[in-house]
Simulated scan of single mutants.
Amino acid sequence: MKKDFAFIDAQRQSAHLIRRNGEVKVGEKITFASGSIEESLQSFKGQYVLLGIEEDIGPRANGGFGGAMSAFKAFLSRFLNMQANQFMNTDNLMILGRAKFECVETEFESLRQAVGEMDEFLTEIIAKIYTYNKVPVVVGGGHNNAYPLMKAYFQTVGRTLDVVNLDPHADFRSMEGRHSGNSFSYAKHEGYLNSYTVHGLHKQYNSQEMLLRMEKEGVIFSCFEHYLDGERVLWSDAGEYAAIHKEGYGVELDLDSIENMPSSAMTPVGWSLFDTRRWLRQLAKENPVYFNFTEGAPDLDSNGNYKVGKALAYFVSDLIEK
């Protein structure tokens, strides 16, 4: 497996940024890390540090589709060209850089071994973000990258973490080797995850075996059909969760949950972007300790760069809105 980390240098910025007379774009105002990770984190005075991840190994190791490799690039093209106006606090976000992973293997055993290597590589980077009391914002890649976010938090802060996930799938599958479907079962088993809550599971796409294991481990979940039938309200559940978990929580937003969004497990029945943003904004108000925007797969749709990139740009802009 090939792996590396790179800052978003001036050449990369220019490749995504479209300048216009009379306008100031986010890409012209936002802070980009350079030199060294530690020096950049130490000097940055804002709250959020964004790490892009370019990989689709985790979803492929889970028997799913690739395509998540290009989500971060799609995001950059849309986010950097948003307007830096009175509604945006661009001083509150630094783009650290991107971690890229490539694996040409197709066998599950090799892919899962590669995910384990990614876990170690990302845990080291993310731990540095926590060390400087910043909130990591991860954009791109598979849901396998939830695991290093939880592990790095435990290693740095010294306590287990509560996590809430908007996702049609619980990703609490058996520990059969690391992939995008078992970040939370591994984190629970290894003592990094305290409580795990999933909003909007699809009844038809979570196995009975996994549901029984979730019950045994105390996983809390609601089903999409609960909202469909009017039994629950999504953003109310988000607000209630944030109010209860005052010591901090991780926020997982799987793009699989959004209707017709190009993703590793695209669904024709899901949340609108209106619903999703309202859920996210409720959780962003209180005490989030990380955000993970995952599973977007622009390569799986002819208009995927626009759909995925713009959705991710909106999510990140919601965090730095004044």
Rank of each mutant, 00 (worst) to 15 (best):
N287W: 12
K25V: 01
R78H: 12
S174L: 13
G248D: 09
Y153C: 01
S183V: 06
P59D: 01
L41N: 14
F224Y: 13
H245F: 14
K285Q: 12
R232C: 10
F5T: 14
V289N: 05
V24Y: 03
H143T: 11
T160D: 11
V198H: 08
D318R: 10
E105L: 02
E117A: 10
L80F: 00
V289F: 01
E117F: 12
F65Y: 03
F108S: 05
S110Q: 12
I53M: 02
P288K: 11
N21E: 13
L228M: 15
Q83D: 02
R19W: 04
E247G: 07
M261G: 15
I8W: 00
A311G: 04
E295A: 13
G218H: 06
T106W: 07
K216P: 02
K25E: 12
G200R: 07
Q42M: 03
M94H: 07
G248R: 06
K73R: 05
A61K: 00
R178F: 12
R277P: 00
A297F: 15
G218D: 13
T294R: 08
R278G: 04
R213I: 08
L300M: 10
I30Y: 06
L273C: 14
S183C: 14
G248A: 01
S40C: 07
R20V: 03
P298L: 01
G46E: 07
K29N: 03
I126Q: 04
K134G: 02
L93T: 09
F101I: 10
I129A: 11
M118N: 15
M69T: 00
G64A: 07
L211T: 12
K203Q: 08
S34V: 04
H226R: 11
L319T: 01
I320K: 14
L211S: 02
Y306V: 08
E190Y: 14
D229H: 05
L149C: 08
A6R: 13
A71H: 05
Q204T: 00
Q11E: 15
L161P: 12
F315E: 02
K203G: 04
Q155E: 14
M175S: 10
V24T: 12
T160R: 14
E217W: 13
P148S: 12
E109M: 09
N89T: 10
P59E: 02
E176Q: 08
E215K: 08
P268D: 15
H179V: 10
D56V: 09
Q42H: 14
L41T: 03
L201M: 01
V233Y: 09
K100L: 00
Y192F: 08
S174V: 10
F293R: 04
F101P: 10
C223S: 13
P262A: 01
E209A: 15
L96Q: 09
L166S: 04
G200A: 02
F315W: 05
D299A: 15
Q47N: 11
F7T: 01
K29Q: 14
E259Q: 10
G116I: 05
F5M: 10
E23A: 00
F7V: 06
Q13H: 07
A297G: 09
L166M: 14
D237I: 01
D256R: 06
E321F: 13
T160S: 11
H202E: 07
